[in-house]
Amino acid sequence: MDLVTSILSIAVFAGTSLVFATVGEIIAERAGILNLGLEGMMIMGAVTAFATAYATDNAYLGVLVAMIVGGLMALIHAIATISLRADQVVAGLALTIGGTGLASFLGQELGPGGGPLVGLIGPKFVEVPIPGMSSIPVIGEILFNKDQLVYAMYLIVPLVWWFLYKTRPGLHLRAVGENPQATDALGVNVFRLRYLYTVIGGMFAGLGGAHLSLAYTPGWTENLTGGRGWIAIALVIFATWNPARAVVGALLFGGVNAIQFRLQAEGTTISANLLNMTPYLLTVIVLVAVTYFEAFRKKVGAPAALGIPYNREERV
């Protein structure tokens, strides 16, 4: 396998959790709910996925539990911000702070006999080459020699894109985030839709966390997500709230991870700590570039009612 193929292959693998989290956040933000609890939901998804898979010896159950946990955490955010009209920025931060603490707590309690999970080796998703397609030169290795969750991503992204832009419920979803007053007047239940899509967004974040602890870096360590939830929030802006473009961004970041691996494997003299800065610095650079060019075109594409609580009695 040549260098470029190997880097692209790792990029897809490393980018998968980012794609799930970013697409989930796009769904929630399109409905008008900014959920900065992404990092907290991802890390809770990661720890519960691994704990479940370890206890039941079934990685699929781990994914299921991670999605339920992500959805439940998003439900807390929905109750606080939609029904109780709490500030979305601070509520999301609280979810991340609480979720990170809870994941650390559970990581020390959910192991065998109430012990720690750290250091355990459990079931994981491994590469399942797709017969025929995986032997296509170059592309086969990059795309079709991956685990099941990567294949799930190939299906989910086009599906979400189609749902958002080509279906009536998708239109309602976007409308709720753009102009909830008008959508309400059309007889669409703004509250119900915002609840629904916030929770679905959380389920995607949990799924992203599950890919980390069950496939990408199997097992549990504190700080497993390492800020991926936050990078995903930046990717939402990069993608201008379009799931198809989110894939490009996530691959870019996966690629940076892959190059890092290569450099470390080749025994570079650059300190790992300095090398690890690249994705975070890249996030800032990409964000600056996107903001600059979008401002130039006078449209950033953010849903107009993003972050604003909807209150039937207060017309804007």
């Binding site: 109780l84 601070v90 702070i97």
Partner: peptide, 15 residues
């Protein structure tokens, strides 16, 4: 970590 969990919970419920 229970301390951090409680902080997050308190902030959320106060919000």
């Amino acid at each position: 970590a229970i301390g951090q969990v409680l902080q997050g919970a308190i902030l959320l419920s106060v919000l």
